[in-house]
Design a protein around this nucleic acid. Structure first.
Lengths: 403, 403
DNA sequence: GATTAAGTTAGTAAAGGTAACAAACTAACC
DNA sequence: GGTTAGTTTGTTACCTTTACTAACTTAATC
């Protein structure tokens, strides 16, 4: 697709056009002459390509700047048109689904939230299509100006064939989501794992802006990570990269016969994931009497966290162990990947401030190189932002649409 | 360097030229017309580029094939000229250094081995230069036909600036090897970590031929791994990727106060590396009497392995623990990287047959996806082969030399 | 008005594409 | 067995696209 493309005058021009647009997007406002200087492309070439981009509305002229101190003609300022095209981002979660319309700079112009489960029967995608069209109508955006729709899915995904291999919370197995979506939407469809999508978002506009090597660790029901390596999402040879829920951080415990094995969950999931925490807590409470948590009908990881924060000894012991497991897992990730930064995402990242010092202690002591750990820069919108970023990345071919 | 290159008629031609040469290298013999068909480049363009490549001796015409069944002009067969240029590969090891002259297909035409330590004083590179020139003279190869020299170094290396950050066995710290080499050799110089170089070799011609996602795990004095991800060597954000010697596979043991810490070595190095094995064995023997290993003045990991193979209980217990640590470490690598294959390299890979079943057992039980584990396809020549591959990869610009 | 910088116009060179053609072969036919 | 039709390879001639250089116009400052 990219490497094996032959060179023709046409591809040559496409390349230069993309280069110029990118340059304007990064450093606007710019004049034609500044672009020529920056990219070392001759002024006539720049002028002719800029002319085309203007016609296609990718860029705008915003009048002349004052001339330099030594005089000369005033340069015509050119800026990127953030509203040239739009992208639809969708974050399908186990409980809630968020859909949004975004411009080319990641400004979310409209969002709609709905409960996933209520729609899972008659088709989440139809619901998405409905709310998307509604939002587009309200914003008065022509459907033809939509570059594509990006969908983040909570499960392992074969991006190439567009198949969701396994998404337990949606009960999808080998679900041909992309194919199905292409029948419904009039736009190009791109799908990926929710963690991959999240790290794309953080690298585009969040805690890892512009970095080339980024790992986002998501701790929720299970534990997983998304990785951007050398600027590109790394998905592994069978879409299973980043499955650190399977990390074994204690070989003696792993080898014990009574260490439980649930299919679809790994050692770290069981010992540090949300479900594992709740499980451990209820086991510990059985041996105990008169504990306030016993009154809860359904025990969640959040409950255990809350009690730990208020220094409840039982909860604290559990959480400390959990944090240790996570800390060593992160240290191991650092040792093998050597990222610029580790970003904490997922439900548990909300209490990050509380346990971050302990994580940092473990990392500084055991990881191969000291590495910064940050929490996610976004809240619930990270998923849709990442989905938008996915579309923009995969559709480098953007310029071909209108030219 | 690659992404930000503008498109000009010249770059366009370079691209097509490279494409055609690659095509011939992969599938020779080919005719002009087959190339045009394969690459969808017009016949006149192919002819003119082929003409240039012939002039530059990158390819050869080897006479006509018989025509097809339906008649027609006999196609002129074109093959890649493996001897068009040559590459020098150097593998600097802690004890021995191997230098070799290779053609473009990885045939080692001549090799020279010498002891590293004897030359480390007055300069390994001068010795390399001497033997290289000698080999070139014997093979009657013009110095100008050497594309470059690749050097594998046993330590962390900053490839961009050409600085060896830390190579304990050579006592190099922040050693500007590339700069020094460029003063000595009349050829372009490329350096990298020995493990990175090894995985390049395996992916080029060995156990991972043509695969895109490969991890080579090297177990010697310490433990490290080299990774090819999406076809490219992955080196991390500060040249520290693959430092799995720092993996912690047992958090309880790691947290113990008496778990020793040597700087430059990680948890896994200490518990499963060569030095760690020898250490553990001598400790165990102190509590024992009348053990044949006690007679050894210097205890090596190989000794312990040999005794374990002959069912000596003390050695066996140590080795079994070591294999477990390594097995879980590999399982963790698989879970995060999801490579197509894991290759075992380094000194200990020689006894791989013996412990491979146990590794496979651990991996199938604990890794996120079942993954094949192979041993290295090469012996001592893997380092120089990889170094040659490094030069060929980094010098994609090959065609610019003579054109 | 001289100077300077921005942007355009005119002409040239480089590269790839298409179409037609020569070359070289097979096969069938008389 | 010689001739002819059909096929495939590789080349030649010409066209189009694109970028570049150089000169020029425009619109500022001093």
């Amino acid at each position: 697709m990219s490497v094996f493309e032959k060179g023709t005058p046409f591809t040559m021009k496409e390349k230069n056009k993309r280069l110029i647009l990118q340059c304007i997007q990064d450093d606007s406002p710019l004049s034609r002459s500044e672009i020529a200087e920056k990219l070392k492309i001759s002024k006539p070439t720049v002028s002719s390509i800029v002319e085309e981009l203007l016609q296609e509305e990718w860029i705008k002229e915003i009048g002349a700047r004052t001339a330099g101190a030594q005089g000369g003609r005033r340069p015509i300022q050119i800026t990127f048109n953030h509203q040239a095209r739009f992208v639809i981002g969708v974050d399908i979660g186990g409980t809630k689904t968020l859909a949004a319309i975004s411009d080319l700079s990641g400004n979310l112009l409209a969002t709609t939230l709905f409960h996933t489960q209520e729609e899972v029967q008659c088709g989440i995608l139809h619901k998405v299509n409905m709310v998307a069209k509604q939002m587009l109508a309200e914003l008065n955006i022509d459907e033809k100006k939509v570059l594509g729709i990006g969908i983040g899915v909570p499960g392992m995904t074969n991006v190439k064939d567009g198949i969701v291999i396994d998404a337990p919370s949606l009960r999808w197995k080998m679900h041909p989501l992309k194919h199905e979506a292409e029948k419904i939407f009039p736009w190009p469809v791109f799908i990926d794992n929710d963690v991959n999508v999240a790290v794309l978002g953080e690298q585009w506009l969040g805690a890892a802006k512009g970095m080339s090597n980024v790992v986002l660790i998501s701790i929720g029901t299970g534990i997983g990570c998304g990785m951007i390596l050398e600027g590109n999402l790394y998905r592994g040879s069978s879409w299973a990269a980043g499955e650190i829920g399977y990390f074994v951080t204690d070989i003696h415990q792993a080898k014990q016969k009574d260490d439980p094995i649930y299919s679809g969950y790994g050692f770290l999931d069981r010992h540090a994931g949300g479900a594992g925490i709740a499980n451990k807590a209820s086991q510990a409470l059985k041996k105990q009497s008169n504990h306030p948590l016993q009154e809860k009908a359904v025990l969640t990881a959040k409950d255990v966290f809350d009690y730990a924060k208020s220094d409840d000894p039982i909860a604290l012991k559990i959480i400390e162990e959990v944090i240790d497991h996570i800390g060593f897992a992160i240290a191991n990730v650092i040792s093998i990947i050597n990222p610029e930064v580790i970003i904490l995402g997922g439900g548990i990242s909300k209490s990050a401030d509380w346990y971050l010092p302990r994580l940092e202690e473990i990392i500084s002591q055991f990881a191969s190189v000291p590495t910064e750990v940050k929490r996610s820069a976004f809240g619930s919108e990270i998923g849709v932002l990442g989905a938008v970023s996915l579309v923009l990345r995969e559709r480098e071919c953007v310029l071909k649409t209108l030219s």
